[in-house]
Amino acid sequence: MGDSSVSHRVLREHFGINTKENQKVIALAGNPNVGKSTVFNALTGLRQHTGNWPGKTVDNAQGIFTYKNNSFLIVDLPGTYSILARTVEEEIARDFICFGQPDVTIVVLDATSLERNLNLALQVMEITSRVVICLNLIDEAKKKNISIDYAGLEQELGVPVVPTAAREGIGLEDLKEEVYQVGLGFKKVQPRKTHYSPEIEEALAALIPKIQDLGWGEFLNPRWIALRFLDGDEKLIDNIVRHLSLKAGQSLNSEVEIAL
């Protein structure tokens, strides 16, 4: 545990994230226009700080909130429709979820256009299992006569689903509770596996064992990596190698430090 937390810290510092001891890191993802910043503001109040992502001209907002005596550092990711990483914003969001190893990733969804929004949620759930869905704008959905079976959705997705109307301050305490439960490991989550067409599943079955041989498995989901190989996302593969060496290099250094 000690070693992995050191390497987590290194990876996070690489993203300009500095955590205090025992502070949990929460990533906040979502499409544009879903009230993500309202959720962010509602959770952190004035305890926030804005800047840019290291080396990028993309906004990076971070904030802190405390719940049940635990401190949470929340990182607002760029609003994106996808994290298949074709733009800088998508790459930042994906790399942070992938390499920043957040303790929980909150995905904010617009309850009035769930189909489009679930696209992102499903993509995030392929990378990390520690996901909490914030189903926002339920007040707007009600106005539009859209009724959603929250329990059914939660069961289907296998991760906590919290209905919220962040602008009205509804559901935010529940959201904190679920983040706390998942972040501290009290609640086990089992995200739904996305089903692919037979030809893709076949190709995946052939690739996954070989990816497992690479020994990246401990913190990257081999199925997700296999999908990126099929995508032809060479940049990600190179990124993985770079981040792994960063991680390996740093844990080596820390061993030296301990020895001294």
């Binding site: 769930l114 499903l122 030809e199 893709i200």
Partner: peptide
């Protein structure tokens, strides 16, 4: 196909 399939799931 991967993008389409994710939408089919959604």
């Amino acid at each position: 196909k991967i993008v389409s399939d994710i939408f089919t799931n959604a």
